[in-house]
């Protein structure tokens, strides 16, 4: 297993967000996390990236326990990319500078090498002419694609995507989803929290339904989204269909 989450628990005050949650992700696998707001999808991704400390349980990446307090979080994060719902590009840097920051400062690559690699990626996702622009001159979809590139130039083993299309206007969602679909065909291992059920169906190898801080049901998208076993999953999907999102 590339990622093994075992009985992870996270409590904020007396609110249990993750309740002994377990989930495994194999190499090249794409897992979609679905579930209502507050079901713990974002918290789970933040725990895997060590931005949030777990209160119990273990997380292994490539067989190494990353929840061990002796593990260096900076080294772990270099192997895990995280893309946020609100892009979180650095507003005082151009798109190119945003992307070059980690390769130059963290991986100590030469700036020529980092620039060449960044431009190659920007070219590939159709943002080459935006390289010198500041984030506030980009549309939401362009910002999110730049943010994904920023995570990818670290050559992560695992890419975590936290509701990456939720802040976008409907007509901009497509360009970001196309990019994720391409990453899947490259063989990138991804865990994505999403509200886009249609997209989860297309791109995910497995869908996991989170409820009450646990994985209540998981399996192939056709089964979980089409013919769920658990009544809670049915209820959730019924509400989604009602809202016109499936």
């Amino acid at each position: 297993m590339l990622l093994a989450i075992d009985k992870v628990r996270k409590v904020f005050g007396d609110h249990v967000i993750l309740d002994d949650l377990s989930l495994d992700v194999a190499e090249h696998e794409v897992v979609a996390l679905i579930g209502a707001s507050g079901s713990g999808k974002s918290t789970l991704l933040r725990c895997v990236n060590l931005l949030t400390e777990v209160d119990d349980g273990t997380i292994h990446l490539d067989g190494e326990e990353i929840t061990d307090p002796r593990a260096d979080p900076d080294l772990v994060r270099r192997r895990i990319g995280l893309v946020f719902q609100s892009y979180n590009l650095f507003p005082h840097m151009t798109v190119l500078e945003n992307i070059m920051l980690a390769p130059v400062r963290v991986h100590r690559r030469s700036s020529d090498q980092a620039r060449a690699q960044a431009m190659q990626w920007l070219d590939r996702v159709g943002l080459a002419e935006k390289a010198g622009a500041y984030p506030d001159r980009l549309s939401g979809g362009q910002q999110q694609r730049a943010a994904i590139v920023r995570a990818l130039v670290n050559s992560p083993r695992l890419l975590l995507l936290d509701e990456v299309t939720s802040a976008l206007d409907p007509e901009l969602v497509g360009e970001v989803l196309t990019m994720i679909r391409e990453l899947k065909s490259d063989g990138m291992t991804m865990v994505l929290a999403t509200h886009e059920m249609g997209f989860a169906k297309q791109v995910a190898d497995r869908v996991a339904f989170l409820d009450g801080g646990r994985v209540l049901e998981q399996g192939p998208p056709e089964q979980v989204l089409g013919d769920p076993v658990e009544p809670r999953t049915r209820q959730f999907l019924a509400r989604i269909i009602e809202a016109g999102r499936l």
Binding site: N49, R77, I80, L82, F84, N88, F90, L101, A102, N154
Partner: peptide
């Protein structure tokens, strides 16, 4: 969230402070 973004890229606290 800016610090979170910087740290998620593997920057140390000092680097996140200085560059972001």
């Amino acid at each position: 969230s800016q610090i979170a973004a910087a740290r998620s890229l593997g920057l140390s606290y000092r680097q996140a402070m200085r560059h972001v």
